[in-house]
Write a protein that binds this DNA or RNA. Structure first.
Length: 314
DNA sequence: AAAATTTGACCTTG
DNA sequence: CAAGGTCAAATTTT
């Protein structure tokens, strides 16, 4: 941004709570759904109370706590290496919800640790969006220019069974704004297609493995969902990359902790992305023309062919 | 066009 | 007065 507001009206204080322009739609469900990647328990959770209405957590996933937030400010804090970000509930006006939170990065680890200070409980009755149990979701009915495909290799969350198509897009949105994914093999990948003029591109978001906490039980549709999707309308995105090989392996619809990888045979699941995917990564291109995923014990998970690089998003 | 974010100004607190 | 918190116009994104 080049131009700054040089002059502004003197606001009438005390503040009139709000006038934040445009709130989230009045729809009952939080739009899309913020990904709560591990809402069960923030890693390194360390709670302390400042007062009844405040609690502090330390987490790796400060933006995905199951609620929808609207950023309203950012401030450089004296002697702090990172700015403090101010958020309030997106339903502040709609539902007079006073919940707010402060997010401040506290370490520059990889991934970094954040301190999140919550103030007030949510009174918006917006159900917290469960963990990213975005199942493989090709959004076949999405007629917008954007479409997202989430390939869900593992499972996570509370098994709420949501199938919120907005969620995938939301995820990317959140991702783009907040995440600096590290390039670890991870059981979750999201491929998003968008139109950049006439050029279609695919973006993939790779989640730090540490962000994907093996869940309890979660349901997953058989993979690949692309194949089971009804014929997409021509106006929407159909995967432009053909599945040139796909294992007919029966994939269980329910995974249990500990077996979610071993039950899948991703080695035979190959996409041909040759002419369609342009990924970039701060780490550079993956060696060779293939990108494969492995579980921590070396078993193949997924195999994406041909010059795919992971999109680190920044 | 509408929604969301950015960012300096302005306010409160100590 | 300094530091932190919030506002809201401008800007960006969808």
């Amino acid at each position: 941004m080049e131009l700054q507001c040089l002059k502004r009206k003197k606001p009438s204080y005390p503040f009139t709570q709000g006038a934040v322009m445009g709130s989230a739609s009045g729809s009952c469900s939080p739009r899309g759904g913020v990904f709560g990647l591990s809402p069960q328990a923030p890693r390194h959770s360390c709670k302390r109370r400042k007062d009844k209405l405040t609690r502090v957590e330390h987490t790796l996933t400060p933006y995905f706590d199951g609620h929808l937030w609207r950023k309203y400010g950012q401030k450089v804090i004296k002697d702090a290496p990172y700015p403090r970000l101010y958020f309030r509930c997106s339903y502040r006006e709609d539902r007079h919800c006073l919940a707010s939170k402060l997010v401040q990065q506290v370490t520059h680890d990889d991934p970094p640790l954040y301190e999140v200070t919550y103030k007030h409980e949510h009174t918006c009755n917006a159900a917290p969006v469960p963990a990213p149990d975005i199942e493989a979701d090709a959004l076949p009915t999405d007629t917008s220019d954007d479409a997202a495909l989430v390939l869900r290799f593992g499972s996570s969350g509370d098994g709420g069974g949501r199938n919120d198509h907005g969620g995938a897009a939301m995820l990317l949105q959140e991702q783009q704004q907040y995440y600096r994914p590290v390039m670890h093999p991870s059981p979750l990948v999201m491929i998003n297609k968008f139109d950049d003029s006439n050029i279609s591109q695919l973006h993939a978001c790779f989640f730090p493995s540490s962000h994907v906490v093996p869940p309890v039980v979660s349901s997953c549709p058989p993979f690949p969902i692309i194949e089971s999707s009804p014929t997409p309308p021509t106006t929407s995105w159909s995967p432009s990359f053909p599945i040139i090989e796909s294992s007919p392996t029966v994939v269980p619809s329910t995974y249990h902790e500990g077996d979610m990888f071993s039950t899948l045979d991703w080695d035979s699941f190959i996409y041909d992305l040759d002419d369609h995917a342009h990924f970039s990564s701060e780490n550079g291109q993956f060696p060779g023309n293939a990108f494969s995923w492995e579980t921590s014990d070396g078993n193949p998970l997924a195999h994406l062919r041909k010059g795919i690089k992971a999109e680190g998003l920044f």
